[in-house]
């Protein structure tokens, strides 16, 4: 039961994008079409889930027992970079059009603060192995929800009469703010 709560907390109540400001770059960059937003979300969720597992293992099985705590950031980011490289290769082989659609944003998953943030939170909150898996999945799903919602709104915004100075990044950020305001309604539903 608690695992479901961790999942829901990461996905909705404490959404990585709208509550913790993680993953803003792709959030602004890839959210102009629902299809590419959703694919980006899926790719990120995949990387996040595996990152959760691998970083938990590295931290608790290698770094801690050997007093190598200070190598935390270096090892995490190297793991993430390699994972993204791997996912990129797989997508290239499996679906060329998807690869082209995601373009430059695939390698940019590496610098997605949400992924490193995920690994750091797992260490901070002292989650167990099982906790971490559900946390990673929840965070990814939450990111996907946020970015897809955003894409849906932006597709409508394209047809609206936005003042020229606000087109693009400004109106996206303001919309994100309103989304964040809406998601605040979930606060306190799950206290984890």
């Amino acid at each position: 039961m608690e695992l479901i709560l961790i999942f829901l907390s990461a996905a909705i109540v404490n959404n990585f994008v709208l509550s913790y400001f993680l993953g803003i770059c792709p959030f602004i960059g890839v959210s102009n079409k629902i299809s590419s937003a959703f694919s980006m979300g899926m790719a990120t969720t995949f990387v996040m889930s595996i990152t959760a597992i691998v970083s938990w293992l590295i931290y608790n099985e290698i770094l801690l027992p050997n007093n190598l705590d200070f190598l935390q950031y270096v090892s995490f980011i190297l793991v993430i970079a390699s994972l993204v490289q791997f996912v990129e290769m797989v997508i290239k082989k499996v679906s060329q059009p998807l690869y082209r659609a995601l373009g430059i944003f695939l390698p940019l998953i590496t610098t997605n603060c949400a992924i490193l943030g995920l690994a750091l939170f797992i260490v901070l909150k002292n989650y167990s192995f099982l906790d971490s898996i559900f946390f990673g999945l929840g965070a990814g799903v939450g990111f996907t929800i946020a970015i897809t919602l955003m894409a849906g709104i932006r597709e409508e915004l394209d047809l609206a009469d936005v003042p020229p100075s606000m087109k693009g990044v400004p109106i996206t950020l303001i919309t994100a703010g309103l989304l964040a305001l809406a998601f605040m309604g979930f606060a306190g539903m799950i206290t984890i």
Partner: peptide, 25 residues
């Protein structure tokens, strides 16, 4: 209070970008 919360951050930065764009345009 909204200024200290995430929503305020997004909106303020968005408006700031808008101002910069306005100046450039």
């Amino acid at each position: 209070l909204v200024m200290i919360l995430p929503a305020g951050a997004f909106i303020t930065l968005g408006l700031l970008f808008g101002l910069v764009n306005l100046y450039n345009l």
